[in-house]
Design a protein around this nucleic acid. Structure first.
Lengths: 161, 161
DNA sequence: AAACTTTATTAGTTGTAGCTAATAATTAAG
DNA sequence: CTTAATTATTAGCTACAACTAATAAAGTTT
């Protein structure tokens, strides 16, 4: 009888997760961006990464070192950042995850806060829920009438208030 | 021409938010729980709050002090925690938000990770997206056939893999 | 090759959010 | 009414994740 602890704080789950999870939310963001850029350029510099993530270079140095220790990137001091095979795999997963959440929110009609909400939510969904949302996306692709009906419903809802 | 900065980290958005937002994610969890319990009991003790949130009492003392400074709870040293009018309003919002996310995930068929995912996601959705999800919930209530079709689709999907 | 510019790192600070260990206040029992 | 048990607080520590200021390395110019 495995006793499952029940948590009521986001932190609680993050702690639990950190036992299984390789990366902290921030490290996930960094790796996702490294993957994005390396897909096209093959490598990225500390400088560039900082600009893309809207953080300062010293913050990047720190995180890149950690990613190196985890065997996810190759990197030497004052050098360039590249992904290892493992880093590529994880990066690909992270980018896909991002895409699934983004697609779902788009289908919901989110526009203004799309990037913001995607960035925030992606770190939080379990693989379980991610799969369900992915399936929902596929379902909605095959049943475009549902989305149409939903959008109409949404419009009506807005006018009624 | 208002220049909107684009962030690619969850942190980035949290920082932005903290300018508008009253509470940090952790404070939101605490207030939500205080509200839950106060609805029935009228008050809560540091001890109880710690137990319910799965944290230690010293952590509670700290947060409760902050909530007091914000005028959300009444509380004196070694005393009992109660909500102010403002605290009640915010607490109600937080509990509703929780409910909306939870309901949506339930409709998606999430079971095992329901509480976990709800706890994690609730702090991160914008009001914008929250509203859309709320409307989606209402839409699905009025169109139960859609959920039925989705569940069937999901089953098929699982078998195909 | 020396001087300047760009890029990156180190050191040290801040804020959030938890923890333990030790202490203090309150409440309950003998 | 004093002791014991419960409950709460303070002080000090850890980790994450950002920041600035100062320094060091690398790359360009002239």
């Amino acid at each position: 009888m495995k006793k499952e602890r029940i948590f009521h704080t986001a932190r609680g789950y993050q702690m639990l997760n950190s036992e299984n999870k390789l990366l902290t939310p921030s490290m996930e963001d960094y790796l996702e961006m490294i993957y994005r850029v390396c897909l096209e350029e093959g490598y990225i510099r500390v400088n560039q990464l900082a600009a893309r993530l809207n953080v300062r270079p010293p913050s990047v140095t720190k995180v890149v070192k950690k990613l190196k220790n985890l065997g996810l990137v190759e990197y030497e001091k004052y050098g360039v950042v590249k992904l290892t095979e493992e880093g590529k795999e994880l990066g690909q997963f992270l980018l896909r995850r991002h895409g699934i959440i983004e697609e779902f929110l788009k289908k919901l009609g989110i526009e203004k806060t799309l990037l913001r909400d995607t960035e925030m939510i992606e770190h939080d969904v379990s693989i379980n829920t991610l799969k369900s949302i992915h399936i929902l996306n596929k379902f909605l692709d095959e049943n475009p009438d549902v989305i149409k009906k939903y959008k109409k419903f949404k419009e009506k809802f807005r006018k009624d208030i």
